[in-house]
Amino acid sequence: MALKSLKKQRRIQVVALATVALVVSTVLIGYAMRDGINFFRSPSQVVAEPPAANETFRIGGLVEEGSLIRGQGEQIRFNVTDGGATVPVVYGGVLPDLFGENQGMVGTGRYVNGVFEASEILAKHDETYMPKEVVDALKEQGVYKEPGS
């Protein structure tokens, strides 16, 4: 009888240890990925519910025509729009070759004092490609036109 209770006790210890290990590994993975997960927002979502200034996220839409201003040094300003709302963007780096007005873009950064401060800017790859999130945001505002139309 003592052998059965020893096996049962050992099994409970193993299950408890496995549970603790699973919880610890989940917490560590979440902690390691906290900066790697950037949620996508359209300009309309940013204007409707401005995120906290310390939150890093991605914004996407079309570069508004006539809004691209190259300032002193590498400072670049432009507006990104989804047709429903427009968000001013400031970027202090080198823009991709395919970046231009009326072109799709996705930027990573923070929304501080009504301006999106981008740390990274991506442009669409060719004449037809646009990130799915940007297409969805533009369709939601009724602005998206299929390529070639």
Results as ranks from 00 to 15, higher is better:
1 M>C: 09
1 M>I: 09
5 S>K: 09
9 Q>H: 09
9 Q>D: 12
16 A>G: 11
18 A>H: 09
20 V>R: 08
20 V>E: 08
20 V>G: 07
22 L>T: 14
22 L>Q: 13
23 V>E: 06
23 V>L: 07
24 V>Q: 07
24 V>K: 06
26 T>D: 09
27 V>K: 05
27 V>Q: 07
27 V>G: 06
30 G>K: 05
31 Y>P: 00
32 A>Q: 11
33 M>V: 08
34 R>N: 14
37 I>W: 15
38 N>T: 13
39 F>T: 12
40 F>I: 04
41 R>Y: 14
43 P>N: 04
45 Q>E: 15
45 Q>L: 05
45 Q>T: 03
46 V>G: 00
46 V>T: 10
49 E>K: 13
49 E>M: 14
53 A>Q: 13
54 N>G: 14
54 N>T: 15
57 F>V: 03
58 R>S: 08
59 I>C: 01
62 L>D: 00
64 E>A: 10
64 E>M: 11
64 E>V: 08
65 E>W: 05
65 E>K: 10
66 G>N: 06
66 G>L: 08
66 G>P: 01
69 I>S: 06
69 I>H: 07
70 R>Q: 14
71 G>C: 10
71 G>V: 09
71 G>F: 10
71 G>T: 11
72 Q>C: 05
77 R>K: 14
77 R>E: 10
78 F>I: 02
80 V>G: 00
81 T>S: 08
82 D>I: 02
83 G>T: 04
84 G>V: 03
85 A>M: 14
85 A>Y: 10
86 T>S: 12
90 V>C: 04
90 V>F: 03
92 G>Q: 13
92 G>R: 14
92 G>P: 02
95 L>C: 06
96 P>L: 10
97 D>T: 07
100 G>T: 02
103 Q>D: 08
106 V>K: 00
107 G>S: 12
108 T>M: 09
108 T>W: 00
111 Y>T: 02
111 Y>Q: 03
117 E>N: 10
118 A>I: 03
121 I>E: 00
121 I>A: 01
123 A>E: 05
124 K>E: 14
128 T>D: 13
129 Y>W: 15
129 Y>D: 06
130 M>R: 01
130 M>H: 01
131 P>D: 07
131 P>C: 04
132 K>P: 03
132 K>A: 13
133 E>A: 15
133 E>V: 13
135 V>Q: 04
135 V>L: 05
136 D>M: 07
136 D>S: 11
137 A>H: 01
138 L>K: 01
139 K>I: 10
141 Q>H: 11
148 G>R: 09
148 G>I: 10
148 G>L: 10
